[in-house]
Nucleic acid binder design. Structure first.
Lengths: 189, 189
DNA sequence: GAGGATGGTTCCATAAACGGAACGCTAGCG
DNA sequence: CGCTAGCGTTCCGTTTATGGAACCATCCTC
């Protein structure tokens, strides 16, 4: 009945929430003291909130997020779990679909365990893939001549031939993959 | 002595939140008493929360939403309408945030009306921007030497100097913009 | 219609979140 | 060099959210 272990993050949640608040604040170049003053909350309260050592009330959270200019929901992480696709080695999560007049872009976040590699068959003509590495080092591209990219680097290739993805080195690879389909191709799937 | 302006529109939020909780509970055919017992919170606490007469702590909200089987973000307003940022010419919507060990990537979808252009000030050191054009033709990059890109093409530049975006030609420009922020070095702990 | 069970609200002592002040720390500056 | 200013954390008295119990109301069952 209530079998599901649904609380993997119950005590990590305050920490995660605090980290998001701190990140939002720092992105705006605001000091803790300044945000506390503008939100009319004590510095102790804000410090504890960001460090996850307090159990803040909603009033506090509303005041802080209002000053940060974001809805409160943004500090609780993504609202839903997106669609995941598993290959033999690549684990891909579809994050967004952009539909333009003549093209469709699909944005995936992909993950390759260290040392893993996978070859994918050719897509229909005109499809291109665009990949940005977040962490790790990978080799990817046409099976006949893949290229290498590290954190922050970018690769692109035509995907109408067989193409490969391989994690190089000891680190797992995380990356964003944008696939461009030129024709209006059947939407959805 | 009344504080002049205290909470203009914020006191509607607790009511709204309470209504959502109550609706979720009733949809599951659960009584207030039962939910309070299962979530290990007092009936008084839950009653006050649903009626908007209390200022609940996050601990309470985590406990209640966990028992309702929903992420806590669901009780805050609509499914978190994406954050839109408007510049003088660029209209940007934050779609996703990727947090890695040492870097954060933010993915925006941006739109420039035909002929529009905008110059943005420098970001902190180490920030890079990566842009993929969906439709239209644009010129973007460091203000001292921008590059041109059309549909499906890609540009990248260091964003720690002033940089520009300009829609070239008669068509509006739609693009995906990935901004890479290096972490402020390994923070404590 | 009395008795019991369950529903949600209100009362109250206790535990904890709150804001202000004091603290240590790191620059910047005369 | 002190001296000042700002940062983030910690301490502490005050304010307040909390959970249990007491409190009505509404259904059932007999």
């Amino acid at each position: 009945m209530d079998a599901p272990d649904r609380r993997p993050a119950l005590d990590a949640a305050p920490l995660e929430m605090g980290r998001r608040v701190r990140r939002l604040r720092e992105e705006q170049g605001m000091s803790l003291s300044e945000l506390a003053r503008r939100a009319n909350v004590g510095k102790a309260t804000l410090s504890g909130l960001e460090n996850g050592t307090r159990n803040p009330t909603m009033e506090t959270l509303w005041a802080v997020t209002a000053q940060l200019g974001v809805p409160v929901a943004t500090i609780f992480g993504p609202p839903a779990e997106p669609l995941a696709v598993h290959g033999t080695a690549v684990e891909a999560t579809l994050l967004q679909v952009f539909e333009e007049d003549r093209v469709t872009f699909e944005l995936y976040r992909i993950h390759l365990p260290a040392g893993a590699s996978q070859t994918s068959p050719a897509h229909p003509g005109g499809v291109t893939e665009h990949l940005t590495v977040f962490s790790g080092v990978l080799s990817a591209g046409p099976a006949t001549g893949p290229s290498r990219a590290g954190p922050g680097e970018y690769l692109t290739w035509r995907a109408d031939v067989p193409h490969t993805y391989a994690a190089i080195g000891a680190e797992d690879v995380h990356a964003g993959l944008l696939i461009r389909y030129p024709s209006p191709r059947g939407k959805g799937r």
